[in-house]
Amino acid sequence: MIPMLHALLIAPFSDFEFMRRALVACLALALGSGPMGVFLILRRMSLVGDALSHAIMPGAAVGFLLAGLSLPAMSLGGFVAGLLVALLSGVVARVSKQREDASFAAFYLISLAAGVLIVSTRGSNVDLMHVLFGSILAVDNASLLLVAGISSATLLAFALVYRLLVVECFDPGFLRAVGGGGSRIHMLFLVLVVLNLVAGFQALGTLMAVGLMMLPAIASRFWVREVWSLALLSVAFAFVSGYAGLVISFHRNLPSGPAIVLFAGLLYVASFVFGRYGGLIATLWPGRHRRR
């Protein structure tokens, strides 16, 4: 039994260096993406993460065309493109008085189409697949450092602006009345979102990166009720998803990115069914545990 479990759960990592790197990358990604997702939900921006992940595409594609499969070039391109879309959306929303999510939708669609066009004129389908879905099994030292660096910066930034972010979500009018808040904090937040998506992009691809950000955060809302515990639990969910996804993709020879995100999706469905707060069973049979 034990040897079998070892072969199933541990051997992939003890035997292969690329699997260990991938696991460390998942841990680093989870540390940054977990709290990020929680704040995206609290700010009612769940879909903005998705929009920005698409927006990163053309930047990464340009980087890819100019420098080949070079992580710094693709990451920088992705970061610039993501930031540009975030900025433009914010500016247009303010000028035109349209809702910010509408301008986000407009710009990410333009950005995505441009990205696909750029890749397809010059690259092959394999390249497109790589940009879209990444490959966590090809993570090298440079990308590990990038991911770890971004996660560290994210956690530090959250530690600094935690209270501001919380109050701005809860009661923005109050925060402005006492002289805090404003658009700077929103911009910093958007920069952090783009940074974390860029971090996830090498490992999971532009489209999958947002999955590891949102699914664990949404799932954890079924279990706990404070911002800090939501953040902790979504880090745990994200890491477990990373680990399980890697194991599954190793044994079944499946692409790792979708395996990781699908496992996170499984955690979400399970949370929806069994969760303490708003879960299906808790809602259909409330208070059943008390009657026993």
């Binding site: 609290l42 602006v161 209270r163 501001l164 919380v166 109050v167 979500c169 809860f170 009661d171 923005p172 009018g173 109050f174 925060l175 006492v178 805090g180 809302r221 009720r225 404070e226 911002v227 939501l230």
Partner: peptide, 24 residues
């Protein structure tokens, strides 16, 4: 204008009254 579903305790919400003293 207030997010009534925000995950926060009553105590924390009330303590915001000290914002001028505690700030961010």
């Amino acid at each position: 204008e207030i997010d009534a579903d925000f995950p926060m305790t009553v105590q924390d919400a009330v303590l915001l009254g000290f914002w001028r003293r505690i700030g961010a």
